[in-house]
Design a protein around this nucleic acid. Structure first.
Length: 862
RNA sequence: GCCUGGGUGAUGGAAUAGGUAGACAUAAGGGACUUAAAAUCCCUUGGCGCUAAGUCGCCGUGCGGGUUCGAUUCCCGCCCCAGGCACCA
């Protein structure tokens, strides 16, 4: 073998060899146990970043490990290829979203190949291809038939000068990010998936995802947000109208002194019509329409509202309650109307004090009398009922139940639950997405496209219009069609689907990515799914994962899959972080713009001292990024992979460190030097596999250490994915081999060294695959290390003849000694008590108790 | 405000079931090799104190309590950092 470790020559060679022998290509093998390992597929933004490198390295290690354990491993990769950045880039570069996307895919695929990941590239998919999204459209039609999709009016952020919708992150301080014009809320007809029908099921199954991180489960639960309460009906005075409200505090209904409606509530306009409040209400509603949602939801947003000019009646007290419309009421939650109980809700309290509305306390904390007129803040806790008619004196928790019953009995309301989760709006007034397969006919209305006419192709010849507007509504060749029902001239839907739809089922498509007869091949999905291990960033903990869980339920309802939960185990890896460096004049600096002089940092542009800022997530805007290509050029893929795994356990944040990378590179060189140095002597030796008893001294110790390392590494990878400690265990083994690499050649030296080295190579192979292949071949192995077996430790090689015993006095470490493993408890106790150093601490005190932990420790209590 | 993590040497991190705190690595220092440097190999390195030498003493896992023979680990209260949600009635 070569004297020098040279990743530049060995890495491309092994990548080519794997590809040539199709080593990562898999198919269903019904008799063999499968393992589906999936990493979240990337958006093809142009370049792989360190976050991808880390995510896919973790996944690749698990995939390769499971393969060595004998599993039939599915490990695919593809592209989440629709979405807005392609449109923005197309405008910026005067290009086309399709061209931009496909070029990026080619570029990123090349980068991923350079990393040596074990993907079955034959299964690659790009969601922007019609062969993919046609099945999304097909499922949309099935869902439409079943009423799982519907259309209604909903608000979007709208820029009047760009004539386009804006995503929330494109609204900057209430104005369009591109032209600066004030954004307004515009009502549009949009398509929705009825995800709320599954809210309860999605919530209930949160308890049945033991392989998911606790924090993701709680995030999902909170997002679904189930709350128990009651719907109460408030009649409007002098009109034949009723305002239903949802409340979780029906026990406080006697304290409801006014009503608040969301500005978008239909009754706001109708109730104020003809009153002297009409103009004021209209102004207020218009003002709210100009305020974008995100700033309306800000914490210290001042509560404001106007009286709508009408009153309703508290069904329990008969009290006349003024009706207001206010900014803090949300149309999307509950019924869009709030019964306001200022004494027991802080928002209502703030509002009541501002507009001088009556405050009536109806729940009193234990041993305290509340007075609505002098109250300083709302009391939201439990207590005793007062001012509540026949419920007075009852505990408020009991009153909740009793009042709900009373309301139900009198037809004034009922117990109910409400969810925070809303239906999933999937319409995007955008070009670069999957067309929604609907046609609008003057006579028949919205009509689904016939199945035989799928896919509805996105016309790639279209160019974006000024301001980034979608060209689809203006593209006659696309829009003009015939009604599938009556054949008359009709117009196509020009909205496209939210890209979260594509990513909600791609993992199922991977099972049979080229299948043309249906959304997927039943046998393939039945064999591979569900995903055994899913790995990705925590930023997708809510939406992507919730949508995928929902979509899988829909597929199950259609009998297309047999399971409800797509991902058995989930790992959310931490972020990749780095310190920021900024210059007082030039702002944030890229690492290559910083001059390092010892500890000092200077701006590469003006030479002034630069500020070293906090360690933060790598991002282009903070310029604290490292280009993986630079690492690949300098150190190679194996070192890059090793660093990502060694510097931190996967779920924690990883702090970039050039020295850490150097350290990884140094370790590989160290192993290489050892292997090259002893290769001639061990090449012909058979790896030692007989009993440890036939060995002695350091050779025996190394043999045992090797078995211990196998156990440690296997446990770390199998149970916890703690690659950092697995690697450190191999480092220890290598250090042990170094200390045996002297001029001495005791008996069995070559066999044991070979065994240790070979074991280390196999265990390192998931982590640094090219490196491992090279050493494996140098050891004379003809087949790829991918086809090797994961090493197995021998229990009898782990047994120790000598044990280190720790002696404590009153819990403090005072002495240690080694004993024969066979020693019995009384003898051990005796040895501990007779120990000289222990004696010093016992002195003439009386021994109260002696605790013996077998094989480990003796604690003497005096 | 609510919910989740987390806080351990100079640094990244280890301690898997309550049992030797600091594995492994980085950085630093020393030595060997070299004309020299780099690379490499070996050694030292939590803090304080004492010593001729240490299998020496004391302190030490954010802070304050508790449980226990024994707590980085379990319980209670608090502080700080990161992430998520946030007028959800």
């Amino acid at each position: 073998m070569d004297e020098r470790y040279d990743p530049k020559t060995i890495e491309p060679r092994w990548q080519a060899a794997w590809e040539e022998k199709n080593l990562f290509k898999v198919k269903e093998e019904p008799g063999r146990e499968k393992y589906y390992l999936l990493e979240m597929f990337p958006y093809p933004s142009g370049k792989i970043h360190m976050g991808h490198v880390r995510n896919y390295t973790i996944g690749d290690v698990v995939a390769r490990y499971k393969r060595l354990r004998g599993f039939n491993v599915l490990h695919p990769m593809g592209w989440d290829a629709f979405g807005m950045p392609a449109e923005n880039a197309a405008i910026a570069n005067d290009s086309h979203p399709a061209r931009w996307t496909y070029e990026n895919i080619d570029n990123m695929r090349t980068q991923l190949r350079r990393m040596g990941f074990s993907y079955d590239w034959d299964r690659e998919i790009a969601t922007c291809r019609p062969e993919y999204y046609r099945w999304e459209q097909w499922l949309f039609l099935r869902m439409y038939e079943k009423g799982m999709v519907y259309r209604r009016e909903s608000f979007v952020n709208w820029c009047g000068s760009c004539q386009t919708v804006l995503a929330n992150e494109q609204v900057e301080a209430g104005s369009c990010w591109r032209c600066g014009r004030q954004v307004r809320q515009k009502k549009l007809q949009q398509w929705f998936f009825r995800i709320t029908d599954y809210a309860d099921d999605l919530l209930r199954y949160c308890e049945k995802l033991p392989g998911w991180p606790e924090k993701v489960i709680t995030m999902q639960k909170n997002w679904i947000g189930k709350s128990f309460g009651a719907e109460i009906r408030f009649p409007v005075q002098g009109k034949d109208e009723v305002i239903p409200v949802f409340t979780t505090r029906q026990d406080t209904v006697f304290g409801a002194t006014f009503m608040v409606l969301a500005p978008e509530h239909p009754l706001v306009a109708s109730l104020s019509a003809g009153t002297d409040q009409e103009a004021a209400v209209a102004d207020f509603v218009e003002k709210m329409a100009l305020t974008d949602r995100s700033s309306r939801a800000l914490e210290n947003y001042e509560k404001e509202g106007v009286f709508v000019g009408a009153f309703c009646q508290n069904p329990m007290t008969g009290r006349s309650m003024p009706i207001y419309t206010a900014n803090f009421a949300l149309m999307e939650y509950g019924t869009g109307a709030v019964m306001s109980v200022p004494a027991h809700d802080q928002r209502d309290f703030d509002f009541a004090r501002k507009y001088d509305l009556p405050v009536v306390a109806v729940v009193q904390p234990p041993g305290k009398a509340l007075d609505g007129d002098t109250l300083q803040e709302a009391y939201a806790g439990e207590g005793l009922m007062v001012n509540s008619g026949r419920f007075d004196g009852m505990a408020s928790t009991d009153a909740k139940e009793a009042i709900a019953e009373e309301l139900e009995k009198n037809g004034l309301g009922k117990k109910t639950v409400s969810f925070r989760l809303r239906d999933w709006g999937i319409s995007r007034q955008r070009y670069w997405g999957a067309p929604i397969p609907i046609v609008y006919c003057e006579d028949c209305g919205a009509v689904p496209v016939a199945e035989k006419d799928l896919p509805v192709r996105l016309p790639e010849e279209a160019d974006l219009l000024e301001g980034g507007r979608s060209p689809l509504p203006f593209l006659e060749s696309f829009v003009r069609t015939e009604c599938p029902k009556c054949g008359k001239a009709a117009r196509r839907e020009t909205d496209t689907m939210d890209t979260f739809v594509e990513s909600s089922w791609y993992f199922e498509r991977y099972c049979s990515p080229r299948y043309e007869e249906g959304i997927f091949e039943k046998e393939a999905v039945d064999y591979w799914m569900p995903v055994d291990q899913y790995i990705g960033g925590v930023e997708h903990a809510i939406l992507h994962l919730l949508y995928s869980r929902y979509y899988t339920r829909v597929l199950k309802d259609f009998g297309l899959v047999r399971f409800k939960e797509p991902f058995t185990r989930l790992l959310t890896q931490g972020m990749v972080c780095k310190e920021t460096v900024s210059c007082p004049e030039h702002g944030f600096l890229f690492p290559e713009e910083v001059d390092m002089q010892g500890e000092g940092r200077f701006c590469g542009k003006c030479g002034r001292p630069a500020q070293v800022g906090r360690v933060e997530k790598m991002s282009k805007s903070k310029k604290n990024v490292i280009d993986p290509n630079v690492l690949l050029d300098k150190y190679g893929a194996d070192t890059t992979r090793l660093f990502c795994l060694f510097a931190a356990p996967p779920e924690r944040d990883l702090e970039w460190s050039e020295q850490g990378v150097e350290g990884g590179y140094r370790f590989l060189n160290r192993v290489w030097r050892l292997a090259a140095g002893i290769m001639d002597e061990i090449r012909e030796a058979a790896p030692y596999s007989a009993s440890a008893d036939a060995l002695s001294g350091d050779v025996k110790a190394l043999y045992k250490k090797t078995h211990e390392t196998i156990r440690k590494v296997t446990g770390d990878i199998e149970d916890r994915f703690h690659f950092n400690t697995a690697i450190s265990a191999v480092m220890e083994l290598v250090n042990a081999m170094y200390s045996l690499w002297t001029d001495e050649r005791p008996q069995h030296w070559a066999q044991v060294m070979r065994f240790a080295l070979e074991t280390a190579v196999v265990m390192l192979s998931p982590i640094v695959p090219h490196f491992a292949e090279e050493l494996w071949a140098a050891l004379g192995r003809e087949k790829s290390v991918l086809l090797a077996d994961w090493p197995v430790w021998k229990e009898d090689a782990l047994t120790k003849e000598q044990l280190l015993i720790v002696v404590q006095v009153n819990g403090k470490l005072r002495s240690k000694f080694t004993v024969d493993a066979g020693i019995d408890e009384p003898a051990l106790k005796k040895m501990a008590l007779e120990d000289e150093r222990v004696g010093k601490f016992i002195g003439d005190k009386t021994i109260k108790k002696v605790i013996v932990v077998k094989g480990k420790l003796v604690n003497i209590v005096v």
